[in-house]
Nucleic acid binder design. Structure first.
Lengths: 249, 249
DNA sequence: AGAAACCATTGATAGTCATCAAGAAAAAAG
DNA sequence: CTTTTTTCTTGATGACTATCAATGGTTTCT
């Protein structure tokens, strides 16, 4: 067992993401207007709120009053479709949870902790108020939303179209790697905090197919997988297999 | 033959969308600041630029200098994946073409006219300049981008997850209907301006499957389809089949 | 530590959908 | 209007993947 894994298991201290890597940071750092520096953001941000594994952060349809960013841990997003909950995405440290709710009254989906997690929260109302007064904040908000749009479009392009199940899974791994890289973590070795069933549900496959294709990708030497930990042998080879260059080498 | 169809075929005058239904309208109408009304937007918008059927509006990777909205006609978006172009979406009157390019240097995909079309264009540089000066414009820009984010997330949720090919096609039709409704057109009867092959490519199916499942949906009385024109018999029944309530009745 | 619940894995079978092939229909071009 | 090209449609076949069933492994709870 590596020391990394041991750290996760014994959990002496959560592996918080650095604030400057967090997607929320533009809305969470002091603003300078002329000669004055305003640090009101510190007042409206509640840092590192703890949630237990399995706990619901919010439910689809709940009134959206807070914007969340993950400080440590990961979670899954689910939405009610045809009488059951379907996994529609995952979130890792540094990522925002439901930016869409900024302009909507309620959350578009539910969020559930996949492990013990810490979240930073920011009041939606306060944020909008300040943004309408200070152009600098408005601009930062704009940047956050645009980046979110680019991200979802990238993953949508990755998943859409004529790709078979094996490519879908490879694309899923590549997408996660890209996001871990953006958050400043290792992107060639990371932990899959979700179950095989969650992955299957998310990709529209059966859990058996996910397991078999993980093994197939391992046999073709693209990845190595053991339980929940995954290792990408060659990012370039994986990108070539998927057919999209997401991570520059 | 209905008079509507005749109008399309003989093309006496394109069926322009009303400006107030266009997604670009927030950036295309006068701004009032205090007692003054500025109509600079009129100067920087080039209205109803004509493109011939099959013509490329822009290509993936081109420097993005303009934001487009469709005034009449429709187009398809394609991206280069694995040595060939894949259809990644379509656009109908009232819709914007590549909002992401607002914060990126180049276009993320190519755009090609599916029929003779008219586009409104707005200079990206000018727009950003004005937005940084006038909060009202910044706010409107924000609204446009957020709406885009909500739209893509909705269609992403619609397509993702464990749905079979028949539901995929039904979801595709429903999504188009929703968008035609948003643009103020009939959403129970409209024209599919793209080929079956384009639809297949977009959905990741074969063209034969698309044809057979169109017929299957017709046999179960959900839709009626003849050549390029489609009619939804019951929006509610279709929504129930897909499992998502996109259009409120 | 032991029990219970959940998750991962493997094999066998059946259903769905891609592919190939060939011809009909529609649209575009001359 | 006729030719040419593109698109649409149908049938037959095979590959891929969902489903069912059974078991072993891991984690969680008491």
């Amino acid at each position: 067992m590596s020391s990394d894994e041991q750290k996760i298991l014994t959990k002496p201290e959560p592996d918080y993401i650095a604030c400057d890597k967090c997607h929320l940071s533009p809305l969470c750092s002091p603003v300078t207007v002329g000669a004055h520096a305003y640090d009101f953001t510190g007042k409206m941000v509640n840092r590192r709120h703890y949630f237990k594994r399995g706990e619901m952060i919010f439910k689809q349809g709940d009134k959206a009053e807070l914007i969340f960013a993950i400080s440590a841990g990961s979670l899954k997003l689910t939405a009610h479709v045809k009488d059951n909950d379907r996994v529609i995405d995952f979130r890792i440290p540094g990522e925002l949870i439901d930016v869409c709710s900024l302009n909507e009254g309620s959350y578009a989906y539910s969020a559930q902790a996949l492990e013990d997690i810490y979240l930073c929260e920011i009041g939606k109302e306060t944020l909008n108020d300040i943004a309408s007064q200070i152009p600098e904040v408005q601009g930062r908000l704009m940047k956050v939303v645009s980046q979110e749009l680019i991200n979802i479009q990238k993953s949508s392009m990755l998943m859409h179209g004529n790709i078979n199940s094996e490519e879908k899974i490879a694309a899923f791994i590549l997408n996660l790697a890209w996001r871990y890289k953006n958050s400043g973590y290792s992107y060639t070795r990371f932990k899959l905090s979700m179950t095989r069933t969650d992955i299957a549900d998310f990709l529209g496959l059966s859990k058996e197919t996910v397991i078999r294709l993980f093994k197939k990708l391992q046999n073709s030497k693209l990845i190595q997988i053991e339980g929940k930990s995954i290792r990408i042998n060659s990012v370039d080879a994986l990108q070539h297999f998927v057919g999209i260059k997401l991570i520059s080498s």
